[in-house]
Amino acid sequence: MREELARLWQYRELLYSMVNRDLKVRYKNSFLGFLWSLVNPLLTVFVISYIFKTAVGNAGQNFSAYVLAAYLPYMFFSMSIMDATGSILGNISLVKKIYFPREILPLTAIISNFIHFLLALVVFFAYLLVIYILYPGSLPFQATTIYLPFLLLISFLLAAGVGLMASALNTFYEDVKYIVGFVMQMLLFLSPIMYFAERMSHDTPRRYLALNLINPIGILCNAYRKTLLAPQGAYGLPPLPIEWGLIAYAAGLSLVVFVAGYWVFNRFKWKFVERP
């Protein structure tokens, strides 16, 4: 693996310019450009908040910020893993003609979505500031925000690991793309994004909770919400503390997934051009 990483390092400028190309191409022909990547989550969160406030009821104070804090990382996982999954097959004509480290393709998809995520987080903090100015109360920014880089690193490793593995497998079995799409969609419901983890831990027997919490994406989405926003209990329940044990589990799992994903990718990468 060290040899592969050294070769990737040689081609770092290519990776940089591919990410650049990706970001440029995505918004070059649209009127709103980059704003599209913000309009989408903001409108989605607006709709979710609206439905929960009117139809489901008892959403809690400043509900939309809590949804947004968990929905933005979910969007990153979903978009980056989906983009990475199709990246090799989408560029197969390039792969068949020129040599370059193949992992650049899925990594480009992950990195460019990661940059969107970072920009979206900037907008998220601006959103908090606006709410604070409109409804002055306690300052919405938390000291625990300093854990953000750590959470970002774990999220990146997890997305890259899954993306590398899925892109390699999808080159041979195109069903992988549909499986990944379905799983990501289910995770939107299985992760505490549109609801609070407090609700789950209160109503649900432990064994169902495990299904919900064992998924690292759910744990990470919840961790973003817990560290970026003030603790808030929902439905009259006291807020749960930040669960470092679960976050450590997610971090360990992400590292394992990353190493395994890169290993799988390297095993298959010479076969991409020869796909039957």
């Binding site: 040689q10 081609y11 400028e13 290519l14 310019s17 591919m18 190309r21 440029k24 191409v25 070059k28 022909n29 004509s93 390039l94 068949k96 003609k97 020129i98 370059f100």
Partner: peptide, 22 residues
């Protein structure tokens, strides 16, 4: 021109393609 991206300009493609060639 195998590695060209159709939405980028010729100039931008020179850089991407050149870097692919190392």
């Amino acid at each position: 021109g195998a590695g060209f991206h159709v939405d980028l300009t010729g100039l931008e493609n020179i850089f991407v393609n050149g870097m692919i060639l190392g």
